[in-house]
Amino acid sequence: WIARINAAVRAYGLNYSTFINGLKKAGIELDRKILADMAVRDPQAFEQVVNKVKEALQV
């Protein structure tokens, strides 16, 4: 799951650890299995999560 998430978030200019930190700051409580599945099956929803994380990180 970690490898999938890392590959997906790198397309948005983040790395895995920064993304996970941003999830916590944004108050998003999705587990890694769901995030990895979302990255593959629903990229639009995953992009929305990434955008919320970037807002929380102020990137």
Rank of each mutant, 00 (worst) to 15 (best):
V53M: 04
V49T: 14
I20C: 14
M38L: 11
T18H: 09
I34V: 08
L30Y: 08
A3S: 11
A3Y: 03
N51C: 10
A45R: 10
L57F: 04
N51H: 13
A45C: 11
Q48T: 05
A8W: 03
L30K: 08
V50L: 03
V50C: 13
A36G: 04
N15H: 07
V40F: 09
I2Y: 13
N6F: 01
Q58A: 14
A26K: 03
W1R: 15
I5H: 00
F19S: 00
A45I: 12
V59S: 14
Q58T: 09
A11G: 12
T18S: 13
R10L: 12
V53F: 01
E55A: 09
N21D: 07
K54M: 12
W1A: 15
Q58D: 11
V9Q: 00
A8P: 00
F46A: 00
L23Q: 02
R41K: 10
I2V: 07
L57V: 07
I34W: 14
K33P: 10
A45K: 12
Q48F: 12
N51V: 11
I28A: 05
Y16K: 01
A11S: 06
R4P: 02
N21C: 14
K24M: 07
A3H: 05
I5Q: 00
L14A: 01
N15I: 08
A36V: 07
Y16R: 01
A7L: 06
I20T: 09
I2C: 06
Q44D: 10
A36N: 02
F19I: 01
Q44A: 13
R41I: 14
V53G: 02
A39Q: 03
K24F: 09
I28L: 09
L57N: 07
I34F: 11
I20F: 09
G22Y: 03
K33V: 05
R10M: 09
K33L: 06
R41E: 13
I20S: 11
A45T: 10
E29R: 14
G22A: 04
Y12F: 07
A11L: 09
Q58L: 11
V50W: 01
S17I: 14
I5W: 01
G13N: 08
K54W: 08
Y16T: 03
W1V: 15
G27S: 09
A56W: 08
S17R: 10
I2H: 01
A56F: 07
A45V: 06
D37I: 07
N15S: 09
I20D: 08
M38V: 05
L35W: 04
K33R: 05
V59F: 13
I20A: 09
E47S: 08
K33E: 11
W1Y: 15
D31R: 13
Q48W: 10
V50H: 01
V40K: 13
K54Y: 04
I5F: 04
A11W: 04
Q48H: 15
I2R: 13
P43D: 05
I34P: 05
R4I: 15
A56C: 09
R32P: 15
R10Y: 05
D42G: 04
G22R: 02
A45S: 12
R41F: 09
K52Y: 07
A56N: 07
K33A: 05
A8H: 04
A7N: 13
K25D: 06
I5V: 04
G22I: 02
K33I: 10
A3F: 02
R10A: 13
E29W: 07
I2P: 13
I5G: 00
P43K: 10
A3E: 14
N15M: 06
G27L: 06
I28N: 03
L35T: 03
P43I: 10
A36Q: 02
Q58C: 13
L23E: 01
G13R: 04
E55C: 10
D37H: 13
V50F: 02
D42T: 11
G22Q: 03
Y12K: 03
K33Y: 08
V50P: 00
G27N: 12
E55T: 12
E29N: 12
N6W: 03
P43M: 07
V9K: 00
V59N: 09
E55S: 13
Q44V: 12
G27P: 02
V50K: 01
A7V: 06
R10C: 11
I5Y: 02
K33T: 04
V40P: 02
K54D: 01
E55I: 12
I2D: 01
R4Q: 14
A8M: 03
L57C: 07
R4S: 09
G22E: 02
N15C: 14
A39H: 05
A8F: 02
I34L: 13
K54H: 06
I5D: 00
G22S: 03
I28P: 02
K24S: 08
A3D: 13
V9S: 02
Q44K: 14
R10Q: 13
V50A: 04
A45E: 08
Y12H: 07
N21W: 11
Q44L: 09
F46I: 02
D42P: 02
D37T: 13
I28W: 04
L57Q: 05
Q48R: 12
E47Q: 10
Y12D: 02
L30H: 05
I28V: 09
M38C: 12
F46G: 00
Y16L: 04
V9G: 01
